[in-house]
Design a protein around this nucleic acid. Sequence first.
DNA 1: TACTATCCGAAGTGCGGACTCCGATTATAC
DNA 2: GTATAATCGGAGTCCGCACTTCGGATAGTA
Lengths: 202, 202
Amino acid sequence: MTTTDSPQNGGRRPQRADARTNRERILTVAEEVFGKGGESASTEEVARLANVGIATVFRHFPTKAALLEAVLVQRFDRLRAQAEALLHATDSGTAFFDFFRLLVADATGKIAIGEALQQAGGNDSGDAARASDGLRRAVGALLQQAQRAGAVRDDAELPEVYALLVATSRASAHGRLEEEVRDRMLAIVFDGLAPRRASRRR
Amino acid sequence: MTTTDSPQNGGRRPQRADARTNRERILTVAEEVFGKGGESASTEEVARLANVGIATVFRHFPTKAALLEAVLVQRFDRLRAQAEALLHATDSGTAFFDFFRLLVADATGKIAIGEALQQAGGNDSGDAARASDGLRRAVGALLQQAQRAGAVRDDAELPEVYALLVATSRASAHGRLEEEVRDRMLAIVFDGLAPRRASRRR
DNA sequence: TACTATCCGAAGTGCGGACTCCGATTATAC
DNA sequence: GTATAATCGGAGTCCGCACTTCGGATAGTA
């Protein structure tokens, strides 16, 4: 349950090339299938689209949950890497907003991802939760940087900001949300995150 | 598929009293069960908690989807009524925000409701979609009233506002979101919806 | 090329859950 | 109270899908 990998080879031969490429192909296809159909998509579908027998999928990932978790870990790690890259590469004031936009746009149509963002943030205690935590921390760093740069209000804290990130991602992932509407929705949220001027509402 | 009702009695006797109360009890229990477990909750669970045989559930609602739809229609209609009540009863500037808060608070823990808000807004062409439309229109009225009262920025339109409503509802429904965090999340969104002052960001 | 550990896929197995059948049990009209 | 049509509920049926089994194929080594 801990490491979602294929058979450990403590023994002899390294690992056959076809096995490795099959594993990668399955993972790629699974990300798409679960993205489109949510976590209720069937394992058979994954196997079919990967041109692989159903048994091969279960050999590499002992359980459907393990496969789903592997997909999520891959995705969370990729997003975290992007967040950390933005942390250093761009204007410290806009990096946060850039990543916010990137994440929401990336989630478009990926049902399982949005769902997982939330669930993994919750009780789950596996690798996915760990990867999710890493992403959350990276977002926290971006947020602090933006606050120091004066681009985001000081009284906004990570929990509510992350909740907004997840909420808008899910909206973008699940619903039929046109790009234009999505952008206007984000514009409102970004305005809400901007530093308060003079007076304060509510 | 059109009317989610029990047998039409074009024939003779009206409808037995026990049948009617059973139907109502099933509907009530179903709202709770689907709220807690999402749409993947089983029909058997509903029957058991309603102290009713499984066949009775299927007699009143020919299909699991029909049962779910009936639950949603009931919920949408109730929310629409609340929205319309607020439209007249309270300060025209705050009615919109009051309803926003009410809807999000009401969604807490009701998984299926949040999911349905979105799906019903999408392709579905049944009664649920009709009820969802009614709710959406009521929200539109609240929004316009608030804009006329100067409480909400003029350039915010229904699609993105409704998307935000759905997004925050789902966040509240699905995740382990503490009440305090939820309120701060809403405060940010409300600030974003407030009329712009002087300059404009992004 | 021959040998073998590794890997593969098609055909199962088992289970959970949506939906149905039918004899027993009412509620209502007279 | 009795007749009877409406309703009920538990025991099935059927199907989709996660997961297994095992004989056949294949990559890697000498």
